[in-house]
Amino acid sequence: MKKILFVLALVVFGSCSDDEKVDYVAKNEEEIKEYIAANGLNATRSDSGLYYVVEEEGTGERPNFNSDVTVAYKGYFTDKEIFDESSAEGISFNLRQVIAGWTEGITYFKEGGNGILLVPAALGYGNSDNRGIPGGSVLIFEVKLLATN
């Protein structure tokens, strides 16, 4: 019986693909640090692993995790390939309806503020492909908080 369990364990663990074994947390951390250094950014790391740069804090109301906001943004990968971008008028949404990196990151700005969010996969779309974004991707967003509704 022990031999059967051992063989089953080997089959289960041996069948994992290399993609499943990638440590995206460590890989993303390294990729973000390299991007920060290469671009001369003065970024802050939060406890969650989100990095952010406040270029202008803003002077209006600061949103909380439950706020409705309007944000203008551009999203790209560390190679600067753009994957999404809003109009200058931005888009409106509730911070509970977006990726965790935005739910947290947008709260570092007040209305009128802007900056950069460097989002590891764990706070973005995770390790699976999502609408053209490869699993495990670091996402970078230039954001401007236009309004806290």
Rank of each mutant, 00 (worst) to 15 (best):
2 K>D: 12
3 K>I: 14
3 K>F: 01
5 L>T: 07
5 L>N: 01
5 L>S: 06
8 L>H: 00
8 L>V: 03
9 A>F: 15
10 L>R: 04
11 V>M: 00
12 V>S: 02
13 F>I: 04
13 F>K: 01
13 F>H: 01
13 F>S: 11
14 G>E: 03
15 S>R: 03
17 S>C: 03
20 E>D: 11
22 V>Y: 08
23 D>F: 11
27 K>F: 04
29 E>A: 14
32 I>F: 11
32 I>S: 14
33 K>Q: 09
34 E>A: 15
34 E>C: 06
36 I>E: 02
40 G>V: 06
43 A>V: 08
44 T>F: 14
45 R>F: 06
45 R>Q: 08
47 D>C: 09
49 G>M: 10
52 Y>R: 06
58 G>C: 05
66 N>Y: 14
69 V>W: 08
70 T>L: 05
71 V>Q: 07
72 A>D: 09
74 K>L: 12
77 F>C: 06
77 F>T: 02
95 L>A: 13
96 R>L: 06
96 R>N: 13
99 I>A: 10
101 G>K: 07
101 G>I: 05
111 E>A: 09
114 N>E: 10
115 G>T: 07
115 G>D: 05
122 A>H: 09
123 L>T: 15
126 G>A: 14
127 N>I: 11
130 N>M: 01
131 R>T: 12
137 S>P: 04
138 V>T: 11
146 L>I: 05
148 T>C: 12
